[in-house]
Computed example of a mutant assay.
Amino acid sequence: MKLHKESKGTITVATLLFIIIAGLSIYFLKFWAILLLIPVLVIYGLVFWFFRVPERHILDTEENIIAPVDGKVVMIKEVDEDEFLKEKAIQISIFMSPLNVHICRFPVSGKVVYKKYHPGRYLVAWHEKSSTENERTTVVVEGFNHHKVVFRQIAGYVARRIVFYCNEGDEAKAGHEFGFIKFGSRMDVFLPLNTEITCKIGDKTTGGIDVIAKLK
């Protein structure tokens, strides 16, 4: 199983903790140490599972909006996007549990025209106000027919580290990685009002593969 580059520090700490807990358990608990080590081993394994990098065949696309993350669609609504667009837009929000792949992918192809990091709070990621009050990053790509698509990584109550690698002027390719979030969070995508939405609330998304909307 291939692991993401953001896993190095976390897995090193998790391995050291596992060795310490295992050593102390065997020394003090003897035979009964197994009762403690089984759940600890499960948690240790979940750390590796969280940082997995699945192989996916990404197709080139222009007008399609691709799911930027693995997760569940929790919101589709018309909102005022006040940071960049300064107008109404359709917001699609996808929530990621700690068991989902947490690679963040460009939802649309084009050129990165804006990026900004915002410090903030750590409300639970499914809270509606987390989109504007939590720690977050905002990226904008100008794509098909000069449409500008805004998308936002949002840290949740558990997620405390957002990473994004793109810069203004970079080429964006739909479905390809631009960042990562540790451990459970949300991604919002803001689209023009005339966009054809092809997903619905409750849908499970596969990042880089599923089409969630189409630009016109």
Rank of each mutant, 00 (worst) to 15 (best):
K148D: 08
V53K: 08
V73T: 06
S93H: 01
E81T: 11
I154T: 03
L193W: 09
G202K: 13
V79Q: 11
P192C: 06
C104G: 04
W126E: 14
V141F: 04
L191R: 03
E63T: 08
T138D: 03
I38L: 14
A172Y: 06
I197M: 02
K200T: 14
L35D: 05
I154S: 02
T206I: 15
L215E: 07
L17A: 10
G23D: 09
I66E: 02
T195V: 09
T138G: 08
D82P: 04
E83I: 14
F164K: 03
I38T: 12
N194Q: 15
T15K: 09
V124N: 14
Y27L: 07
D203A: 13
F18S: 02
I154F: 06
V73C: 08
V74R: 02
L24N: 13
T15M: 11
M75N: 11
P98Q: 09
I34N: 03
T61N: 06
P54F: 10
L215N: 05
K2W: 11
L35R: 04
A33M: 03
Q91M: 13
A89E: 01
P68E: 05
E62D: 13
I162H: 04
K116V: 09
I94W: 02
V73P: 01
A89N: 01
R186L: 11
T10C: 01
